[in-house]
Nucleic acid binder design. Structure first.
Length: 229
DNA sequence: CCAATTTGACCATG
DNA sequence: CATGGTCAAATTGG
């Protein structure tokens, strides 16, 4: 009956409630694509890790469920000032390998291609690596790669967004195309962050390869016009 | 049957 | 005090 919640410490990031540019809080991803490289490795310097001390980085993606790791949803709460509820995920190996890695999902807009803001906290210490995607990347015949443009779902059904499970068990009827968008720097910097294909050529593992063929050129949330968040 | 998921309530923090 | 976050328990699906 112990609630050992003493582990609680750490705040994702400052509230981007502020209108205008909510980019200050958006930390750049670790450079890697799938949180394989955390910004900091050993944050625990003090004794009482405060929420503010927790290492966390934000990442915007269209496929928050496919980051190369398995997560277990442990809660969902609606946030004030948020149109969509916030989902809380934790590493499936948290109890198995003491993996403190956690991530929360927040839908930004209900566009057809909804954009999700994923805040990762802590890195995977479970040593469980990149979960191979047997369901998606399982066998990708080099033949059906061309012209593989699948959208999330027909635009006809507005408002009704389909949800899929990260478990990768049932992919539902609609074939979820293996989307793999890189994190987009919400900061409209002058630098055009080109979606350099993430083909890192991992000859070592090779199983980390993610499909990146169907890039339907997502609608840039930050064009030149300001944002009305 | 097991596991994962879901919802509510409680707690912690600011 | 309010909000956000997490845990616990219950339910559903496979």
């Amino acid at each position: 009956m112990k609630r050992e919640q003493s582990f609680e410490f750490g705040d994702p990031s400052a509230p981007q409630d502020a209108m205008g540019s909510a980019s200050e809080s958006s930390y750049s991803p670790p450079g890697a694509v799938f949180g394989l490289s955390p910004p900091e490795s050993s944050p625990r310097s003090g004794r009482h890790n405060r929420r503010r001390d927790r290492p966390s980085w934000v990442r915007l993606t269209y496929t928050p469920y496919f980051d190369g790791h398995l997560w277990r949803k442990y809660g969902q709460k609606k946030i004030k000032d948020a149109e969509y509820p916030r989902l809380y995920f934790r590493c499936s190996y948290r109890e198995d390998r003491q993996c403190l890695a956690s991530k929360l999902l927040q839908q930004k807009n209900g566009d057809d291609p909804p954009l999700y803001e994923v805040t990762y906290t802590y890195e995977h210490t479970c040593g469980a690596p990149p979960v191979s995607f047997p369901d998606i990347v399982a066998d990708q015949p080099p033949a059906a790669r061309e012209g593989l443009v699948l959208r999330f779902d027909s635009p006809g059904g507005h408002g009704g967004d389909a949800r899929m499970k990260q478990n990768g068990h049932c992919q539902q009827s609609t074939s979820r195309s293996p989307f793999m968008m890189l994190s987009f720097a919400s900061t409209n910097q002058t630098h055009d962050q080109q979606p350099a294909v993430f083909r890192s050529d991992l000859d070592a593992a090779g199983s980390s390869s993610f499909p990146t063929e169907g890039l339907p050129a997502p609608p840039p949330a930050n064009g030149e016009d300001g944002d009305m968040f």
